[in-house]
C-alpha cells in the first residue's frame, strides 16, 4: 500500500533526511486549480481559476479576503485553507484590538507557517494540504508571500501555484521586471495573462471561472467575481492560453484535440470538472453564455 516504509507519517525521516508525508502534501497543491499573484510598487493582485464539480453547480471559492488590507488565494484542500484563513482573521483582529493597527503581512504569514510546521513534527497530525498566496499591503508597501504545507514561506514578486502553474510561472519569470512600475489595470492584465497560460487545452477564462482580487496602497482589498470580472476579460481580449493559440491559429481545420491529462478536483466535489465553456476546437471569440451567467458562491 505504501510506496516505502518511510512515508507512513510525518514523524519519520527517510535515510536521506526527507519527510515523505510533507512532500506528498505539497503534491496536493498541484491537484487544485491554478492561482497567480503578483506585485507592483503600489498594488498586489491575486487571480485564480475556479472549478465547478458539475455544470449546474457553483464554483469553488478560490480567493478569500482576510482583513481590509490583505487576502489569500488557495490551491489544494479548500477546507484546510478555511481553517488557516479563520486563524489569520483572528490574528488580524487581535492586532487591531491590541495595537490598533493592521497586522503586518509577514507577521500573519509567519504565524500560519509556525502552525503548519508543528503538523510536520508530531505524530497523529497531518500536514495541511493546501498552498496559499497571501497578498496584501502594509506599512512597507505591497507584499506577496507563498505558503506551503511544509511551513515554508517565501516572499515573491510574482508566484503561481496549482495545476499547470509552471506555465504561469514561466510567464511571470519572463515579464516580472515590468511589474514594478505598472498601474493597477496593467498589473491585473499581467496576472490574467499568466493565469491564461495555465489553462487546459479546452478551457478559457470566463467571468464565471475567474476570480480577481486587488489591494493597493491606500486601497482596500477588493474581490471581483462573476460579472464584475468581465471588464478585465474584455481588456485582456484573448482568453485562451498562448500554447493553444499557437497550435490552433496556423491550422484552420484542426482535429478535435484530445485532452490526455486527467484532472481530479481537490477543491469542489469529486470527479472531473465539466465546465460550461466552449469545447475543443470551438469558436474562439464569444464566450459561452451559459458559463458567463453562472453565478458564483461569493
Amino acid at each position: 500500500m505504501f510506496r516505502n516504509s518511510y512515508d507512513n507519517d510525518s514523524v519519520t525521516f527517510s535515510p536521506q533526511g526527507r519527510i515523505f508525508q510533507v512532500e506528498y502534501a505539497l503534491e496536493a497543491i498541484k491537484q487544485g486549480s491554478a492561482a497567480v499573484g503578483l506585485v507592483s510598487k503600489t498594488h498586489a493582485v491575486l487571480v485564480a481559476l475556479k472549478r465547478n464539480a458539475e455544470e449546474l453547480g457553483s464554483y469553488q471559492k478560490k480567493i478569500i479576503g482576510i482583513d481590509s488590507h490583505f487576502g489569500i488565494a488557495l490551491a489544494g484542500l479548500a477546507p484546510d485553507a478555511r481553517v488557516l484563513s479563520n486563524f489569520m482573521r483572528q490574528q488580524a483582529m487581535s492586532s487591531r484590538l491590541l495595537y490598533n493597527r493592521p497586522i503586518a503581512i509577514k507577521r500573519v504569514v509567519d504565524s500560519i507557517a509556525e502552525k503548519a510546521q508543528v503538523n510536520t513534527q508530531h505524530y497523529g497530525r497531518r500536514p495541511y494540504g493546501v498552498g496559499l498566496l497571501v497578498a496584501g499591503v502594509d506599512k512597507a508597501g505591497p507584499h506577496l508571500w507563498e505558503f506551503q504545507p511544509s511551513g515554508m514561506v517565501l516572499e515573491y514578486k510574482g508566484a503561481a501555484i496549482g495545476a499547470r502553474s509552471q506555465s504561469a510561472r514561466t510567464y511571470l519569470e519572463r515579464n516580472f521586471e515590468e511589474f514594478e512600475n505598472v498601474d493597477k489595470d496593467e498589473l491585473i492584465k499581467h496576472g490574467l495573462q499568466a493565469l491564461r497560460d495555465s489553462l487546459a487545452q479546452d478551457k478559457e477564462l470566463t467571468s464565471a471561472n475567474t476570480s480577481i482580487a486587488v489591494v493597493g496602497v491606500g486601497e482596500d482589498f477588493v474581490l471581483y467575481d462573476g460579472d464584475s470580472v468581465q471588464v478585465w476579460l474584455d481588456k485582456l481580449g484573448e482568453t485562451r492560453s498562448s500554447r493553444r493559440r499557437a497550435e490552433e491559429e496556423p491550422a484552420t481545420t484542426e482535429a478535435t484535440t484530445t485532452e490526455t491529462t486527467t484532472e481530479t478536483t481537490t477543491e469542489g466535489a469529486a470527479g472531473s470538472s465539466t465546465e460550461g465553456q466552449t469545447g475543443p476546437g470551438g469558436p474562439a471569440g464569444p464566450l459561452d453564455p451559459a458559463g458567463e451567467n453562472m453565478d458564483t458562491t461569493e
Binding site: S5, Y6, T12, F13, P15, Q16, G17
Partner: peptide
C-alpha cells in the same frame, strides 16, 4: 530506523542520524 526513540542493537538512534542528513 523506522521510529524515533528506538535504539538499534549497537546503540544508535537512526532517526536522529537521518535528521542530520537533512542538515
Amino acid at each position: 530506523d523506522l521510529s524515533n526513540s528506538v535504539f538499534s542493537p549497537d546503540g544508535r538512534n537512526f532517526q536522529v542520524e537521518y535528521a542530520s542528513k537533512a542538515v
